[in-house]
């Protein structure tokens, strides 16, 4: 059913990266390791984006997540001295969470994804359209009057607010003249 070619091999490797990295994040005791697992997982997601013909998003994924967010997380780990969590990694109700999560996954996979998008559904095509929009089309859509120009500006405001808010909250009281 699924032939063995370069794409499927790449898909398998990337899936292993994503899921392995994700498991590393939620299980590791050492939070610096956790951040590195996160990087691995997000690198896999970037690979997915390439496979899905969205190379622009792949580059942005590496740039934003690995270059900035992961670094920020490591800074926070160092600043809060929580490199290795002393005591328990998980809380006492962790097994309830585990069961819930497994049930949720079964619901999602067996209940929704396979019936709706499985065999014979629109996504189960063997050939995809070769022409897809790239960064140029994305740029046009972002600033088009009938496109995403409003969210585009709102994103800017959100970023501004996030930056100001984070600076206000994160700074020590003593060295900031309020």
């Amino acid at each position: 059913m699924i032939e063995l070619n370069a794409q499927t091999i790449a898909f398998a490797i990337l899936s292993a990266l994503i899921l392995g990295g994700g498991l590393g994040v939620v299980t590791t005791r050492n939070l610096v390791h956790g951040a590195l697992w996160l990087i691995l997982s997000l690198l896999g997601v970037a690979g997915y984006f390439v496979l899905l013909s969205a190379p622009f998003l792949a580059a942005v994924q590496v740039l934003v997540y690995i270059g900035a967010i992961a670094i920020l997380i490591v800074f926070a780990v160092m600043l809060t001295r929580s490199m290795t969590s002393l005591g328990e990694v998980r809380n006492r109700q962790w097994w309830i969470s585990a069961i819930t999560v497994v049930l949720l996954f079964l619901l999602l996979a067996v209940g929704i994804i396979l019936p709706v998008w499985g065999r014979g559904a629109p996504g189960d095509v063997t050939t995809l359209s070769a022409t897809v929009g790239g960064a140029v089309e994305l740029g046009e859509a972002l600033v088009a009057g009938d496109g995403f120009v409003l969210p585009f500006e709102v994103a800017s405001i959100l970023l501004t607010a996030a930056m100001i808010g984070a600076i206000v909250v994160a700074r020590d009281e003593e060295d900031g003249q309020a």
Partner: peptide, 10 residues
């Protein structure tokens, strides 16, 4: 350090 990382992220 965090502040620089933050501005960079934005």
């Amino acid at each position: 350090y965090y502040i620089y990382g933050l501005v960079f992220l934005i």
